[in-house]
Design a protein around this nucleic acid. Structure first.
Lengths: 338, 338
DNA sequence: GTGAAAGCGCTAACAT
DNA sequence: ATGTTAGCGCTTTCAC
């Protein structure tokens, strides 16, 4: 049987109230009593039950986090930043990995509710009607990180995906590429699917480049799909001289595919990624990428959520962080240099 | 104010016991009452408090996990397997990322205790005296995953690091390499530091190869240190024809360094990794690696912990999983072929 | 300064 | 088959 406050009180020869006071660092406890209590705690190896404490205080110090894929370097980096801020503020993370499993998300949302978490962070946007209903009913602060669901009620911490993709494409255009392929994400995703595709399309058309639909394909953000989609693009009659993939993972897959076709990156085909993950510095040639401030994203998400929990005013609009193009080796200037 | 069981009882016109019975799927509740209760629950959007429930049942369904580095693909993959098994058994994960911060571990161990988690998974082995004392005092099942601390009391789920490193080195020897460099881990780590180094050393000496201490260096498992240590090795008079790094990340760093010195992998120098992470398939040339069954490791860890929690008999010895050498492109056969 | 007692939201005897 | 009631381990008035 676990040792409880009563046991400590008995051993110290004081009331439970006094023990509780010492535990919570209140004043109005004489030093000698305080010491007695601390000795008893030490001797019994007593650890106060957060469960009981939560029940009376109506405060759990718990945050629920829903991650689409823990093995992804992008999400796990955000998660680690979230954890850092949470821990510094004495909050604990209840982590759930829902790999495309929408039922699991529903289940976890319910669990979070039952656990009385004080805030919920969601990192994916494929929310169906059932989830939307539940999420609206829950009276717990919810914030989205790195994604923006089609729902005005909740705020997101994101980059301007449209503009970022526009800028990335523009960069390739400025390097002198006429024909630029595109490996997009899931078009059911607004943030990383639709918005990035729109950015690419508009940058192209505003520069008078025509879209070659054979060179436009969609993957699932993972390395494998980048490889496969690149394979399709290379099978066309006139492959593009540059390809923009909306995740670093897909960009790396594309690079590998290009190499397996005995072509050079960036000599024959330039490749641009998106995310600014650890991979960019790790592959050779190093990957030029449209960088999201991944760490900051996690930090800001948690900061805002903590404010929301504290009842402070929080912005009622999305928090848009700066994207930044980091040029590395995978994109080549095609212009004639003098 | 949160809706509670009493509110549901009132609305349904029954006692709280009846509501509780419906909640917990007990029989002995007439169908019409059951329906009334369910309607009330639905109408009020009631979610039973796990906090209160835990208090009386003395069961939290919580597992505490201590990860050394969430951003590492190795640990996050184990974590995702753990999560999968936990979730399937209705356990929730309290996740803590301690990046070399031993104080944070101490703090979290205390938090876990206070949260009354039912089991603790630890994925690193740098435990100091203070932590050892605490961990022994806690009456919660503890299991180590992928590491083995110097402590007989707890079991670990691991591979045979000594044998795995031995086999990896042996493989390079069999490929005809006479001079094999080594990029080890932290020698304070038993599992991945000392044991792997011993495996390398013994494989070398048993084959009559002499150890060249200039070619033996130690890093921190990360890409950067692999690069830096390889740089040192390449600065010696007669660099080896093969290098064995005890993490895939360091192996990739080494490969990049070799390339930056205008040498070929594996033409000039072969590189062998350790872990079998996603990276192996992603870099070019693909990385030959001594594979740990990462997913299985997480699964088995959680399986055993659940048994332990259930009070079942569990093995009193470490659970050693099979390692497996996966040959890819980064190691070359130096023998004369006819 | 310190303690007695009520109560947080639920479950589980026990009674009916 | 349903309800009454006593706790689970703690905090927090309130009284002394």
């Amino acid at each position: 049987m676990q040792v409880k406050i009563k046991d400590v009180a008995k051993l110290a020869g004081v009331s439970v109230t006094t023990v509780s006071r010492v535990l919570n660092g209140e004043k109005y406890v004489k030093d000698d009593l305080k010491e007695k209590v601390n000795r008893a705690i030490e001797e019994l190896g007593y650890a106060p039950s957060q469960i009981a404490r939560s029940l009376v205080r109506k405060k759990t110090n718990l945050i629920g986090v829903i991650v689409p894929d823990l093995t992804s370097s992008f999400y796990s980096t955000i998660l680690s930043s979230i954890e850092e801020v949470a821990s510094a503020n004495d909050f604990n993370l209840l982590v759930c990995n829902i790999s495309e499993d929408i039922d699991k998300e529903l289940k976890y949302l319910t669990v979070f509710q039952e656990m009385r978490v004080e805030g919920i962070i969601i990192m994916h946007e494929k929310i169906n009607e059932q989830i939307r209903t539940l999420i609206h009913k829950i009276k717990i602060p919810v914030i989205f990180s790195s994604v923006k669901p089609m729902d005005q009620k909740f705020i997101s911490v994101i980059v301007d995906d449209y503009q970022a993709a526009y800028d990335a494409t523009q960069y390739l255009i400025e390097l002198g590429h006429e024909s630029i392929g595109f490996i997009g994400g899931d078009m059911r995703d607004i943030t990383s699917g639709q918005n990035r595709y729109s950015g690419y399309r508009n940058a192209m058309s505003e520069s008078g480049k025509k879209l070659v639909y054979e060179h436009i394909r969609f993957g699932d953000y993972k390395v494998r799909s980048g490889y496969d989609q690149m394979h399709e693009i290379l099978s066309t009659k006139n492959p593009p001289t540059a390809v923009f993939a909306v995740s670093d993972d897909m960009a790396v897959g594309a690079m590998n595919c290009i190499r397996d076709h005995h072509l050079q990156v960036p000599g024959d085909i330039s490749v641009m990624g998106f995310d600014g993950s650890q991979l960019t510095e790790l592959v050779r040639p190093t990957l030029t990428s449209m960088e999201q401030p991944i760490h900051q994203m996690g930090k800001v998400t948690m900061d805002v959520l903590l404010k929301q929990i504290a009842g402070d005013m929080i912005p009622d609009e999305d928090i848009v962080l700066e994207h930044r193009l980091v040029a590395r080796e995978s994109c080549q200037n095609r212009k004639q240099d003098f």
